Simulated assay, not measured.
Amino acid sequence: MSDLSGKAYLVVGASGALGSRIARLLIDRGAAVTVTGRDADALGRLGEAHAVTADLREPDAGRTVVEAARERHGRLDGVVIAAGVVAFGPFTDIDDDTVDDLVLVDFLAPLRVMRAALPALEPGGVILGISAVVAEKPLANMAVYSAVKAATAALFTAVRSEARRRKVRVVDVRPPHTETGLANRAIAGDPPRLPEGLDPDAVAGRIVEALLGDDTDLPSTAFS
């Protein structure tokens, strides 16, 4: 991959398994990187990065982190949205608080980050969002999560056409099950028995290729 000196990126959800790996790959290639998440200790382990602790459930968090990144680096060339939560269980058992958190983190947060990022990005910039394979194939006992991720994928697809006028590329990424540990941190319910997932290092590497290349859509089949 090319040297990224002089480029600046924001990685949202950088305290997670994929977000932290993506941030590290960008840093290793010379980019200036702002990382954000709720876990300040995890962000601190990305020592070379500019860390901004934020809770994406807050309405102003998206705008705040975008503004912080642009102010810090003087420019913004790309935004990666890697934050997310998951919940399991029968549809009738998912309570309203769980639904609210799924919508806030997995749909409204990407919407707000993207809305703030579009006018802030340099021409030729990119916004990359990580939805999930369930956006392509909704699953029983993950009905609300599947629906929210499908809505997020639809949002990215729709905004892509608008963003072209600003010379910004929008990428939706839908990786298959990956060994990030997210299923074991579900906000509700117990995960089903899952087959062994993909290596998160390999998935992060493919995502960075898409970020730096010319992809606009990365379906689950792109990781096979």
Rank of each mutant, 00 (worst) to 15 (best):
A210H: 14
V11L: 07
A51P: 03
L4E: 03
R75G: 08
G84Q: 02
H73G: 11
S131R: 02
G74A: 13
A120V: 02
D101A: 13
V33F: 03
A82R: 08
G181C: 06
V144H: 09
R38L: 04
A135M: 00
A8D: 12
A186E: 07
V12I: 11
A183T: 10
E136W: 00
S146H: 13
G13S: 10
R193W: 04
E58F: 03
L4D: 12
I187H: 00
L118E: 13
L118A: 08
A143P: 05
T34W: 00
L212Q: 12
A54H: 05
H50E: 12
D97E: 14
L56V: 07
L198T: 03
D3Y: 02
L46D: 01
S224C: 07
T36K: 09
F91N: 07
V126T: 15
R165V: 06
A49C: 08
R70M: 13
F88A: 03
V11Y: 06
V133K: 00
E196Q: 15
V171G: 09
A143H: 05
A135I: 00
P192W: 00
V126A: 15
R29Y: 05
V171R: 11
L128A: 15
P195T: 02
A54P: 02
L194N: 07
L194R: 14
L128W: 02
V103F: 11
A17Q: 14
A147Y: 01
D214S: 15
